[in-house]
């Protein structure tokens, strides 16, 4: 762990902040195109953030201090979680601070505060959002950890850098377990990021909201932080899918050329994922809440089959 790699880690952390709004803008843009709308420019989310930062922040009379602290806690824990995923360079010292289980834990920490913040003002919608969010996450988390375990048991490590390194060292291998885990993680990502078919990020239709219901009372810079945290989470799952399962292209050195190439390939991968997400959101309809367990059961089944096919098919004793 040289000093240079710490610098690169800082650059990657800042890059996350820069890329997250871009990804969401891109997804929205593609979606608008697919739905024959003109849509906002790709850079609109940056402007949204700027606008929210300038606006006055209001807090309900009934809110406790936790309400004001929560946006910071949510933002920081999500950001820190994202900062442990190798983005453009493989040699990432922050990955040693928190391995992939700790990453899931950090995301859970953010979610805990998000749900509490939803309940804090004492409105009906906030409680509804919190209750549903905890249900979805309770079902998604085991699927996510099983998918991760598949990776970890193949690489004999829970450290993302080691996982990717061992994957790169193996070269291209058709692993049924990785295929299953990949699809399981896609389903989990859809659920955790509140995308269609689990939750509609653009809705304010009261009875179908999950994520939005918890943000209802937030305004101004609080809302800006919460929104940015949600976008970072989307980016985080995108990078997990793109870089951990297909680690080719992530820079293995620290020279500017490698990093630049890593960035280019990463943006390309994310653009493709964004298009896939937009297509999916255009084609699929939102599920009603009590279909969500079936959806996440499928994710869990996929993850479990990934693990079993690893144990049964890929290793022998």
């Amino acid at each position: 762990m040289s000093l240079l790699s710490w610098y690169v880690a800082c650059i990657q952390a800042l890059l996350i902040l820069g890329l997250a709004p871009l990804l969401i803008g891109w997804v929205r843009r593609v979606r608008a195109f697919l739905q024959n709308r003109r849509g906002a420019p790709v850079f609109q989310p940056y402007l949204d953030l700027y606008k929210l930062m300038l606006k006055e922040t209001r807090v309900g009379h009934t809110a406790s201090p936790l309400f004001r602290a929560a946006p910071y806690a949510i933002f920081v824990s999500t950001w820190l979680a994202a900062a442990t995923v190798p983005l453009i360079a493989l040699d990432l010292p922050t990955a040693w601070i928190a391995d992939i289980i700790a990453l899931v834990g950090l995301l859970a920490l953010g979610r805990f505060f998000l749900a509490l913040a939803g309940m804090d003002v004492g409105t009906a919608f906030g409680g509804m959002g919190a209750s549903r969010e905890m249900l979805v996450s309770a079902l998604a988390e085991p699927a996510m950890l099983m998918a991760i375990f598949t990776l970890a048991m193949t690489a004999h490590s829970t450290n993302l850098v080691s996982v990717m390194e061992s994957h790169l060292a193996d070269g291209f291998i058709l692993r049924p377990s990785y295929l299953f885990a990949f699809f399981a993680l896609i389903l989990v990502a859809l659920a955790e990021c509140g995308r269609i078919p689990i939750d509609n990020p653009t809705t304010h239709l009261e009875l179908t909201m999950i994520h939005e219901a918890m943000l209802l009372e937030y305004t101004g810079h609080h809302l800006a932080l919460m929104e940015l945290a949600a976008w970072i989470k989307l980016l985080l799952y995108g990078v997990l899918l793109a870089n951990v399962f297909l680690p080719w292209g992530v820079g293995q050195g620290l020279d500017p050329l490698t990093l630049g190439r890593g960035l280019g390939i990463l943006i390309l991968k994310l653009a493709i994922l964004g298009v896939a997400l937009a297509v999916g959101e255009t084609v699929l309809a939102k599920m009603r809440l009590f279909r969500v367990p079936l959806f996440l059961n499928l994710a869990f089944l996929l993850a479990l089959l990934g693990l079993l096919s690893h144990v049964i098919l890929e290793v022998g004793s």
Binding site: I173, P176, F180, L298, L301, L305, S309, E314, V315
Partner: peptide, 29 residues
């Protein structure tokens, strides 16, 4: 036995077997 020791076709065979198993589960559910 590890997966790296197998040829690509054999890996593909394993992949197909895994997928058939998955379809069996889909059939049930």
């Amino acid at each position: 036995m590890t997966l790296n020791a197998l040829t690509l076709l054999q890996q593909f065979l394993i992949l197909l077997a895994g997928l058939s198993l998955f379809v069996s589960f889909i059939l049930i559910a």
